[in-house]
């Protein structure tokens, strides 16, 4: 079918005891393989085993719900040592060090500290991504979404840091991903539905994006059908393929080939109908929901401690480190 990339993400892919075997098979099939991990449960020996199995790339991510990130930038290294050690082990095994930080309103003011930390680690790529509001983050949006003023400050800080890095001859690359809630046009989500991407969830459900499961659409399962028929023939993957499904304002829009009407999940979460244009678009009749979220972000008082954790048990465990 021509797929060239295979990503192991989660949840936490390290809970698979046979991960090295899966990587070896991916390599055997000619895939470029990428592991996205929290680093918890990783060891230098595992990194080496993955390398030997043919893994091409590792990304260590720091989630919005990681209390340890706050500890680390605040100076307490202890809870954070495992992650830092693994970031180093990845680099020692010959990989570029790729770190991903989920940024939200309670850590966006620590941007410089976070980048300093990455610089000390000699990171190669640093992605500072403001979280996207689906699932858990949608429920906690008021507690996560940065205000416009915070965003402007952070952008200026990242730009200035980038200039310093360039002046010092550093090769570290900073990528700052801002929330689409502050855009006037939607993102080209997944480069179009059923266009490039397919993900298989733990139970075998095949999805056109990580969060598509929240949509009232039936999706196929790899235990019941082959990938070829899932990709080309299943109703789920054909549901929003192309542009014949589009209502106005997308249907007659000259930008529909560029953004594909934006994100179906966001349209569903914010308007109750996934057929609608992504309300991020200023042409959407539901754009007021986005404007309301921006206003709310200017006045939010939700503290970090008010966030609902995905899994209370786990976050306590992490906290004990």
């Amino acid at each position: 079918m021509g797929a060239a990339q295979l990503g192991f993400s989660g949840g936490e892919p390290l809970v698979r005891q046979d991960l090295a075997e899966l990587i070896a098979e991916a390599r055997h099939l000619g895939y470029y393989s990428n592991l996205i991990t929290s680093g918890l449960g990783l060891t230098a020996a595992k990194v080496q085993a993955f390398r030997d199995a043919g893994l091409d790339h590792i990304q260590v991510s720091f989630q919005a719900s990681d209390p340890e990130l706050n500890n680390a930038v605040a100076g307490s290294r202890k809870a954070f040592e495992q992650k830092l050690a693994m970031a180093r082990a990845v680099k020692e095994a010959g990989y570029p060090m790729v770190l991903n930080f989920v940024i939200h309103r309670h850590n966006i003011h620590q941007m410089i500290d976070i980048i300093d930390l990455c610089d000390r680690l000699d990171a190669d790529y640093v992605e500072l991504a403001t979280c996207q509001y689906y699932g858990w983050a949608f429920k906690n949006r008021a507690g996560l979404m940065p205000s416009h003023a915070q965003l402007i400050t952070a952008e200026a800080e990242v730009d200035a840091y980038r200039e310093r890095l360039a002046a010092n001859g550093s090769r570290m690359k900073l990528i700052f991903v801002t929330p689409d809630y502050y855009e006037e046009r939607p993102k080209a989500c997944m480069n179009g539905w059923g266009s490039l991407f397919l993900t298989v969830a733990l139970d075998g459900t095949a999805l056109p994006c990580h969060s598509a499961r929240l949509l009232p659409i039936e999706f196929p399962n790899v235990r019941e059908s082959g990938l070829r028929s899932i990709w080309y023939d299943s109703p789920g993957f054909n549901h929003y393929r192309g542009d014949s499904w589009m209502p106005e304002p997308c249907r007659s829009c000259d930008e529909k080939g560029k953004d594909f009407g934006g994100c179906r999940c966001q349209a569903y979460l914010l308007t109750g109908d996934a057929d609608n244009a992504d309300p991020v678009c200023s042409k959407s009749s539901h754009h007021d929901r986005i404007l309301a979220a921006r206003r709310a972000a200017d006045h939010a008082t939700t503290g970090l401690e008010d966030l609902t954790y995905r899994n209370t048990e786990n976050s306590r465990l992490f906290f004990r480190g």
Binding site: A4, Q5, G7, Y32, N34, D56, H57, Q59, V98
Partner: peptide, 9 residues
């Protein structure tokens, strides 16, 4: 021939 890199080709 292709050149593969994270999330791209």
């Amino acid at each position: 021939h292709v050149l593969l890199y994270p999330e791209g080709m």
